[in-house]
Design a protein around this nucleic acid. Structure first.
Lengths: 156, 156
DNA sequence: ATCCGTGCAAATACTTTGCATTTAC
DNA sequence: GTAAATGCAAAGTATTTGCACGGAT
């Protein structure tokens, strides 16, 4: 069903008045195939290059920026240097990103709205859920590693 | 009382077996004077340069890395390209960072522990509170700007 | 006296930009 | 046919590294 996602992306690109080129199709394919993941520009570029021939980095960056502008993807900075991109088709969950293995744990939005509401009511702060990702250790990594890279409880 | 903070930093640097040099003192001064803020390496460098004479960027980066290693500061990536640093002496609050004005809103840790516990219990995910910062709009910016740069409610 | 920290210069990683050519529409 | 997208090359920004000298302990 990643094929279905691709179709949706294609339609939204066309609907936004953007042109559906070969590099863009390849990028859509990579994004659709990694629906739940946060991918670096390098990963997306590598995947897209495998699909069709050579694609220039600048083309990938420009396409991803365009996609972000029409709300297809979000561009987020998690601890690491290279920023990451991920699809936004699924609007019903938030991400907890593991600092060890990089995998996102999905949390239904219903679980976090109470917390966001609290921040709004008590501190007047409106959370930008699009840029929301919490870093830490996922279940398997925290049981596997007795000494996580960073302490996990204290505040800053 | 930023003087007191400086003293504390100096002691912790010495206690960790690091040497207390002029550039490091200057950096401590800047950090202490901006206790609550998230500063870029460039801001810290500029401030430190004002204190004492010219300091090399590599020196600042190395000092900040050393400070992070002994737990004096945290190195975080918020949406923007240049990453930021902030003091960790105060361990009793979390940060909500405004994407418009950059100012952090401080939230007592007691307000968030329930949420962190929920993530742990329901999803087995241990939050790294050191790298915890939520992006959004602070109270004054959200009232001032009718159209915030990003939508603020939906999830991703 | 020792060895850690510094400055300098060069290198690297990631991303952006200008411009001529190509291509989707 | 026309405007938008691409590829290339070059520049830009943020950060890191190697090495010889200088200064803190």
């Amino acid at each position: 069903m990643t094929k279905l996602i691709e179709e949706t992306l294609h339609k939204r690109i066309r609907a936004a008045g953007l042109r559906l080129t070969l590099p863009r199709k390849a990028i859509c394919k990579v994004l659709a195939a990694n629906e739940e993941d946060f991918l670096t520009a390098a990963q997306i570029l590598a995947g897209a290059t495998t699909e069709v021939g050579q694609i220039d980095p600048s083309t990938a960056y420009r396409a991803l920026d365009d996609f972000a502008e029409i709300g297809l993807v979000h561009h987020v900075n998690l601890g690491s240097q290279p920023s990451k991109w991920h699809l936004t088709l699924d609007h019903d969950h938030q991400h907890l990103v593991c600092e060890t293995c990089g995998k996102p744990t999905l949390v239904p939005s219903s679980e976090v709205t109470a917390f966001f509401d609290l921040l709004k009511d008590r501190f007047g702060f409106t959370v930008n859920a699009d840029h929301f990702a919490i870093l830490g250790q996922c279940e398997s990594c925290s049981t596997a590693a007795p000494h996580p890279p960073h302490r996990a409880t204290s505040a800053s």
